[in-house]
Amino acid sequence: MFNIPALTWTLTAVLLAGGSYHLWQAARSHHLTDRVNNTLHALMNALMAAMLWNLAPSTTLAQIGLLAAAALWFIIQAVARPEFKLLCAGTQGRLKCAYHALTMAAAALMIAMMTHPTTSPAPANGSQADGMPDGMSMTMPHSHHAMTAAPHNTAPDTATAAAAAYGHAAPAILLTVFFAAAAATFLTLLLRRRAMTNSAHHQAATKHSTRTEHALEALGATTMALMFATMTA
C-alpha cells in the first residue's frame, strides 16, 4: 500500500500488536460479549495488516462481509435497551460502541476502495502506468486486462479514472479528518486520565487498564488516519 517500507512495517507492527492485545483480552475475559468484541477487534487489525501487504485478495468479499457484520454487531450494542445487559451501558459505553461500529465500517470501506483502486489508463503496449503502487496490478488483474484490451478508448478511461479518483478522495478525506480527531481525543483522555489517577490514587490495575485502552485507541485511530490519508492523492 505504501512506497515507504519503514512506514509499512511500522503500521504493520502497530496493527499486529493491537490485535495481539485484543486476543489476550479476549482470552482472559469472563464475559462473552467482551470476548466477542475483543476477537472482532483482533480480526479487524489482522485484516488491516494483511491489506498493507496485499495478502489474500481472493477473500476480499469475505473480509468486507465480516467487517460489515462486526459494524452491525456494535450498532446493535449501542442501541440495545439496558435490560439486555450488553457491554454498552450508559452514554459513554454507547458512544464507545458507536465509534467501534464506525471503525469496523471504515475498515470495510477501505478494503473495498483498495479493491477498486484509482489508476491511470494503461499505455497502448499494455505496460503498467508510471507511479502505480507496487502490487496494485495484483489487486485488480481483470481490470488491468480490460484496460489493455482497448487501448484506443483513452479519453473515456481518463474520465472514468478521474471520476473514480474523486469518488475515492472525498470519503478518504472525511475519514482521515475523523480518525485524526479521534486520535487527538483519545490522546487527550489518556493524558487527562493519567493526571486524575495520579491525584486520586485509584487502584493500580484499573488505572493501567484504562490508560492502555486509551493508548491503544489513539494508536488505532492514528493508523486509520494515515492509511486513509494515502488514498486522498
Rank of each mutant, 00 (worst) to 15 (best):
62 A>L: 11
62 A>K: 10
62 A>I: 00
63 Q>K: 14
63 Q>P: 00
63 Q>T: 04
63 Q>E: 07
63 Q>W: 10
64 I>R: 12
64 I>D: 04
65 G>L: 07
65 G>P: 00
65 G>H: 11
65 G>A: 08
65 G>S: 10
66 L>R: 13
66 L>I: 02
67 L>E: 05
67 L>T: 00
67 L>R: 07
67 L>I: 01
67 L>Q: 03
68 A>R: 14
68 A>N: 13
68 A>T: 14
68 A>E: 12
68 A>C: 07
68 A>H: 08
68 A>M: 12
68 A>D: 10
69 A>L: 12
69 A>R: 15
69 A>G: 10
69 A>E: 11
69 A>P: 01
69 A>M: 07
69 A>V: 02
70 A>Y: 09
70 A>S: 14
70 A>C: 12
70 A>G: 08
70 A>E: 10
70 A>F: 07
70 A>Q: 04
71 A>R: 08
71 A>I: 04
71 A>E: 08
71 A>C: 07
71 A>Y: 03
71 A>T: 03
71 A>L: 04
72 L>T: 11
72 L>G: 12
72 L>Q: 15
72 L>S: 12
73 W>E: 06
73 W>T: 01
73 W>I: 01
73 W>D: 02
74 F>K: 13
74 F>D: 11
74 F>A: 12
74 F>R: 13
75 I>R: 13
75 I>F: 02
75 I>Q: 09
76 I>G: 11
76 I>V: 12
76 I>W: 05
76 I>N: 12
76 I>D: 08
76 I>Q: 14
77 Q>E: 15
77 Q>H: 09
77 Q>M: 13
77 Q>R: 13
77 Q>G: 15
77 Q>T: 03
78 A>P: 11
78 A>E: 08
79 V>D: 01
79 V>C: 07
79 V>M: 12
79 V>W: 02
79 V>F: 02
79 V>K: 05
79 V>N: 08
80 A>M: 06
80 A>V: 00
80 A>E: 05
80 A>D: 13
80 A>Y: 00
81 R>S: 13
81 R>E: 09
81 R>F: 07
81 R>Q: 10
81 R>K: 11
82 P>M: 06
82 P>T: 03
82 P>Y: 03
82 P>A: 06
83 E>H: 10
84 F>S: 08
84 F>C: 09
84 F>D: 10
84 F>K: 13
84 F>G: 04
84 F>H: 08
85 K>A: 14
85 K>C: 13
85 K>Y: 06
85 K>F: 05
85 K>T: 10
87 L>S: 15
87 L>M: 06
87 L>A: 13
87 L>P: 01
88 C>W: 01
88 C>E: 12
88 C>Y: 05
88 C>F: 05
88 C>Q: 13
88 C>R: 08
88 C>L: 04
88 C>G: 14
88 C>V: 01
88 C>H: 09
89 A>I: 05
89 A>P: 00
89 A>G: 10
89 A>V: 06
90 G>M: 06
90 G>T: 04
90 G>E: 08
90 G>Y: 03
91 T>Q: 14
91 T>S: 13
91 T>L: 10
91 T>V: 08
92 Q>K: 14
93 G>L: 02
93 G>R: 02
94 R>E: 02
94 R>Q: 06
94 R>M: 02
94 R>W: 01
94 R>Y: 00
94 R>H: 03
95 L>E: 06
95 L>V: 01
95 L>T: 02
95 L>Y: 07
95 L>R: 11
95 L>I: 02
95 L>S: 05
95 L>N: 09
